[in-house]
Design a protein around this nucleic acid. Structure first.
Lengths: 336, 336
DNA sequence: CTGAAAGCGCTTACAG
DNA sequence: CTGAAAGCGCTTACAG
C-alpha cells in the first residue's frame, strides 16, 4: 500500500499538502491536481488507523445485542447499521448473550479500541455493568430497555407497560373477562403489569395463577405454556403472549386443543414480527416500533458526537400501537 | 486515559518494559510486579489503535451480508461473531443489500481501516466486485455462495443442486409425479436444477410452466406464487418452495384453497429455519447447515491468519440433509 | 497557501 | 533481562 509520503514525493509537495488535499481543505487548484494525479497513479488510500491515532476519532460505533438470531434484535441491528453507514460510521457488533461477563469483556475491548460511541440493546446482562458503562470514555446510549431505566445514561425505548395496557384494553373492549398469559419472566413483567391495569380499570383481577411463565422465547415454549394454561383454565376466553414468538406456538396449541381462533378464543401477541401477519388467522398484536427506536438511539448518539458533547440524558419513550388482525374477537356467548 | 509512558514513569522503568509485561513476554518477576501495580493504580489500558499501527494487525474481521433481518443471514452473523470472539477477534459488520456499489464502498473502507480479513456471505451484489475482492490486501473467504464459485477465492458453501435433488428424490419416493415450484429467481436456480434431476432420473420432466417465479423472499410472495401455481395446475400433488419463508406462505395458500396438507398435497421447503418446525403441519424441508458453514468459513480464515499465509483456495461443500416432517406424504390415489 | 517539526501510543530491532 | 532510538502513517499547530 502506498503511503502519504510516497504520494507527496511523487507530486513534489510535502505530506501536509497531501493531507490537506485528502481531507478536502483549501489547496491551490494546480497543486491539488498534481496531488490527485499522484494519488490515482499510486492507488493511494489513507490509512485510517493512523488518522485515528492522530485525531482520536475512529468513526466506529459499537453495538451490543443479546443475540442476533432473533427477529427482534436482527431488525435492530439492521436498522442501526443502515443509519450508521448513512452517516459515515462503521459498526462493531458484539453479542452479550444476556451475560454480564461477556458484556464486561466486550466493553473493555471497545475501550481499548477507542470506539467513538456505544449503543446497548437489551437490559438483561447489562444491568450489573451499568456503573462501568456510565464511566466509559465515550458516549453510551441504551435502547430497547425494559426495566427501570438508570438515570446515569440516556435511554430510548418504548413504554412496555403501556404496550401491555393496549393489549388488555383491546381484550376488555371486546368483552373478555378471563385471560391467560404466557410470558417470559421476569423479563416481560411490565407487559403483564399493563395488561392487569387495563383489567383493573374495570374491577377485574388477573391472578398469578393465570400467568404461565417461560424462561426463553421460542414457539415450543409458547405451545407448552398455552397447553398448560388451557388445561388449568378451560374457561378462559383469551390468551395474551408477551412475545409473538411465543404467540406463534400458543396459537397452534389453542387450535390443536380444538378451539377455533378467534371464535372460541382470542390470541394476542406482542412485537409485530413479520411472520405474524401471515399466520392463520392473522395475529392481533402490539406493534413495537423497532426501527424507529434504533434510529432514534443512533441519532441521539450521532448528534452528540457531532456536537462533541455528551448525549442529552433523556428517557425517550416511543408509542407502541395495537394492530388488530383476525385472531381476536368477542368471547363466545356463555352457553355457546 | 493513562498511557504506557505514564505507567513506565510510575513504575520506574522504560516503556519497552511495560510493553513486554503487557504482551506477556519474559520479564523479571519483581519488575513485572512493579509494572502491574502501576497499571492497576493508573487503570491503564493499552491503546489498540497504536498497537495496530505498529504491528499491522487489527484483530478485526469484516463480514458482509446482504441483509441481517432475515433468519438465514442473522444465524450466519451470530455464528460468525461467536467463533470470532472465541478467537479474540472483533467483528465489523456491513450490509451489502445485494448491491455492487455498497459492496465496493464497504470494501474500500475496510481496506483503509486495515481489517485483518474479510468474510463475504451471499453472491448477489458481490459478483461484479469479485476482481476487486481478489486483489484485496487481506485474505477473503466467500460463503453461502450459490452460483458458480469463482476460482480466485476460497468458498465454503453447500451443494445447492444436491439439496434440490434431495427434495426431488423425497417427492419421487413418495410417488409424486406432478410438482409445482415457487422460487426466487434467478437466485435459486440451482435448487430447481436438482429437483429436476431427481424427477428426470425416473423419466419425468418438470416443465418451465410448473415454475412460479418470485423476486423476493417473503411469505406473501410464497402465498401468491402458490395461489397462481394451484390455479394453473389443479392436478399437482406436491409443491416445492425454494425457501422456507416462501413455503410458509405457500402452505397457507394450499390450505386456504381447501386442500389438506399432506393428504391432498405435499409441501416441501428449503433451509430449515426455526419456525417451520412449528407450522401446522410441521414442514418437511431441506436443512442447510448454516452454523457449520459459518464456522468453517471463519476457521478457514483464522487458520490462514495464524499461519500468515493466504487461505487455501478450496471449494468446501457441506452436505444438506432432508428433514422429513408432516407436510409430505404420498399423493392421493387418483379418483380420491 | 505551503514547508519543517512534533506528536498520537504503541512495537521492533539493537545495544548494553 | 533492561534501556535509548527509530518507526508505524497520519494530523496539528506554527512559521514562512
Amino acid at each position: 500500500m502506498a503511503t502519504m509520503a510516497e504520494v507527496a514525493a511523487l507530486a513534489g509537495v510535502t505530506k501536509q499538502t497531501v493531507s490537506n488535499v485528502v481531507s478536502g481543505k483549501k489547496v491551490r487548484p494546480d497543486t491539488a491536481a498534481k496531488v490527485n494525479a499522484a494519488i490515482a497513479q499510486l492507488g493511494y488510500k489513507p490509512n485510517l488507523l493512523a488518522r485515528s491515532l492522530a485525531t482520536g476519532a475512529t468513526m466506529t460505533v459499537g453495538l451490543f445485542v443479546p443475540v442476533v438470531a432473533n427477529p427482534f434484535y436482527s431488525e435492530l441491528v439492521e436498522e442501526v447499521e443502515n443509519v450508521l453507514v448513512r452517516h459515515g460510521y462503521n459498526l462493531l457488533l458484539a453479542t452479550t448473550r444476556d451475560d454480564g461477563e461477556y458484556t464486561r469483556r466486550h466493553l473493555d475491548i471497545l475501550t481499548r479500541r477507542s470506539v467513538d460511541a456505544l449503543l446497548v440493546a437489551g437490559d438483561a446482562g447489562v444491568i450489573e455493568q451499568l456503573p462501568t458503562l456510565a464511566t466509559a470514555p465515550f458516549p453510551v446510549v441504551l435502547f430497547a430497555w425494559e426495566v427501570d431505566p438508570p438515570d446515569t445514561l440516556p435511554v430510548v425505548s418504548i413504554d412496555y407497560e403501556h404496550a401491555g395496557f393496549l393489549a388488555g384494553r383491546h381484550l376488555r373492549e371486546l368483552g373478555h373477562e378471563k385471560v391467560v398469559v404466557v410470558a417470559v419472566l421476569p423479563a416481560h413483567t411490565r407487559r403483564i403489569d399493563g395488561l392487569r391495569r387495563a383489567f383493573a380499570a374495570d374491577g377485574l383481577t388477573i391472578g398469578d395463577d393465570m400467568i404461565f411463565a417461560r424462561t426463553t422465547d421460542d414457539p415450543a415454549g409458547g405451545f407448552a405454556g398455552a397447553d398448560a394454561a388451557l388445561a388449568a383454565h378451560p374457561d378462559a376466553t383469551a390468551l395474551f403472549a408477551t412475545h409473538d414468538i411465543l404467540a406463534l406456538g400458543a396459537l397452534q396449541a389453542v387450535q390443536e386443543s380444538g378451539r377455533r381462533v378467534p371464535e372460541d378464543m382470542s390470541v394476542v401477541g406482542f412485537d409485530d414480527i413479520a411472520q405474524v401477519g401471515r399466520t392463520h388467522p392473522a395475529m392481533t398484536t402490539v406493534a413495537v416500533p423497532k426501527r424507529e427506536m434504533a434510529q432514534q438511539a443512533v441519532e441521539l448518539l450521532l448528534r452528540s458526537l457531532e456536537a462533541e458533547r455528551p448525549p442529552t440524558n433523556v428517557v425517550s419513550l416511543l408509542r407502541p400501537t395495537l394492530v388488530v388482525r383476525d385472531s381476536s374477537a368477542p368471547p363466545p356467548r356463555s352457553g355457546d
